[in-house]
Write a protein that binds this DNA or RNA. Structure first.
Lengths: 228, 228, 228, 228
DNA sequence: AATGAATGAGGCTTCATTCAT
DNA sequence: CATGAATGAAGCCTCATTCAT
């Protein structure tokens, strides 16, 4: 005992250090030496535990994606109508990104690499993640509250926006002073983006409210005249 | 003759090759040797023209960002009401990304690096780019067609979504077959995303249409009853 | 066992190989590859131990200068009147140069480079080295055996001559045959130079011996006549 | 016309620039590009004029050594007794070094390289240079004013000291402040060294003045007793 | 003669990975 | 398990030199 715990702790420390390092500088930019130092283990020790840089990266991906999928499922399971669920999704993702700043970076870098290092097992996590959005939309269309829309578009509109907003933080911060002259606030918190998305996408995807009868009648009449 | 032309061509060839390489594998992943080979010049020749890897990268960024700013400005200048202008913005960006597949990748990678290699001159281009969105929104609020919204949020909702959709292409393609079982189409063209954004963000940002008089009257009456 | 010994040995071997290489061709002429080969280690191994070419050079300088200072102090500590001490100094230096042929070369090359790579720590060794000569001269002036003279001039007359004589060896050797026609022996051993310096500088710096009484009397008388 | 002048001027400018560069950083440290820039010609133009780096270096050496030989011969030809001639030699050399600061550096660096790049023609200049010292000494022994001594030792004692003093200037300057605490003046001008050498070597090489007769008699008597 | 543009060879350094203890 | 010490394979960059104009 202790031993196994210790072993688990060491592995965890390594994975966390690696996540930070990979998120900071990407796969090719990350140095095994730096990860080992950050994790407080010897370089050779790291190899003993994880095999090699590639396997380490895959383990990091798997761990993170599982966390993402779990968090999103949980957030959506809280209930609420489909519109609210989309908002919950965005807010949950923003929460994740705030807690794990390396997460959006790794997601972006991994996508940019074309999934070069994506382990097969991670695909299963993807499936879980996409399913969440798809189910919300299906529910919304079924109950008439949402217009039909491609789930991938909706999903990436939410997640993509949050990723890029997180990613751009250092740049926005650097540009913030100069941007104030333009009347732009570049340093708003990520949570604000989630709220914005919840509101704007919610409205944008909402089905038209049924017009009041007199209006509808007037509208139809007009249309008749035009046709004539 | 052709001397000056040739020289310009060489630099251009180098910058294009570099853009592709940097977009493919990022700054640290890119190999100067590969860029030179791709550009059809000797490695030393490349150094003769561009100084070093870092300067090369900066030149690439500057060139691309200038292209982006120019294209967006042009697209929006075509006129149209603010809602249409946002759509034009999204479609212009999508067009750029389709023509220059390395562009969204470089943008993402550069953001991920915290702008580590961003030349000061590139900030000026950023200013132009953000200004476009800000002006559309200001116009929309002024003429009453749009709700007020943070320009940065809107801008990144459009651009971020397009970036991540582009970025995720290889991964979506790889996952496409498996996703069909889930009822998901992962391989829709980027233009579809632009249309989706134009539609959804347009609706989401539109100000409420004034209700028809009878409805409004009915609504007010109801409110009176509730107050009582 | 032997680990620590071996490790120490490796560093020592590297420093010795580097000293020879730097002495042979100077800093810019020395190739890290050659030093590593000569030391029997891998190039990367050399970097593991010493960091980089510059640090390697500094370590070499420090080691050599410490040896010089130690040897000179020891030689002079043997006692003897100031005139003998200067001779001992010259002979000790000549002995060092004979044992470490790269030493005069490195000293010359380092001076020629303006001390570009001189580590701050080496200045402390310089202080020790110069102090030796200064103390001898001070002692000689105090006991009346030596004329006052600038310590730096004396020091560099001894050391500079020995350095240049050592440095010029290959050239003298090459020129030796042709020079015999001129009645010049260019291939005399360095020890001869030390003896020559001991003798000549000894005489040159000696205070006038008190003339014998009759001579002095005669001299004074003459002076009187001249004054008159 | 003009053309040939111009050509001559260009070559001269190149040789001067090269002398400074080689003196500053040695053969391997010197960059053809830097020499060309300093001489105000194109790199390819430099090659057109001088062939290659090695030939350029040889031309520089030849030019400098011829200047040295000429100056020394001239200085000594001014006449004066052998002791004064040695002083004149030292002062002439010091004058040369003051006017051409790269000269002592190049001499040292060339010696350090074992004459690797020394052109055969330069040997003839060496012969002239050494001959000067040899002749003075021979004259001094012949007229009884100087003790016999190896010409090479004397020559290098003078020249070597001046070379090393010149060479060490930057280092002495850097160390000067710290050395003042030790009672050392490290920043005395080179001319002082020449004077010191003239004085000290003059005394050191002077033949013994004949002792006054009574003293000599006493001395001989003492020696007899010791023998007994 | 002069110049901008190459280019091959080689040098310094880094880094993922392994080995011996 | 842990660690200091290797090592081969690159990667970035420089530089002497040449070529075409």
């Amino acid at each position: 005992m202790g031993d196994i715990e210790e072993a688990a702790t060491v592995l965890t420390r390594i994975l966390e250090a690696a996540a930070e390092e990979f998120g900071r500088v990407g796969f090719s930019g990350a140095k095994v030496e730096a990860i080992a130092r950050r994790a407080g283990v010897n370089k050779a020790g790291l190899y003993y535990h994880v095999g090699n840089k590639e396997k380490l990266y895959e383990a990091v991906l798997l761990r993170l994606f599982a966390q993402v999928a779990g968090t999103l499922e949980e957030a959506v399971a809280q209930g609420g109508d489909p519109g609210q669920a989309l908002g919950a999704l965005a807010r949950a993702m923003a929460g994740l990104f705030a807690r794990l700043p390396m997460l959006p970076r790794i997601m972006a870098l991994e996508m940019a690499s074309g999934g070069a290092h994506m382990p097969a097992a991670a695909l299963a996590e993807f499936r879980r993640i996409f399913t969440v959005t798809r189910d919300i939309l299906a529910r919304g269309v079924a109950d008439g509250s949402l217009r039909p829309a491609e789930p991938v578009f909706v999903h990436l509109a939410l997640v993509g926006t949050l990723i890029v907003y997180s990613l751009s933080e250092p740049l926005r911060r650097r540009f913030a002073d100069a941007a104030r002259d333009l009347g732009l606030s570049l340093d708003l918190p990520l949570a604000g983006v989630a709220d914005f998305l919840a509101e704007t996408m919610g409205r944008g995807l909402a089905s038209e409210p049924p017009a009041c009868p007199p209006c509808a009648a007037a509208f139809l009449e007009e249309a008749d005249h035009e046709d004539a």
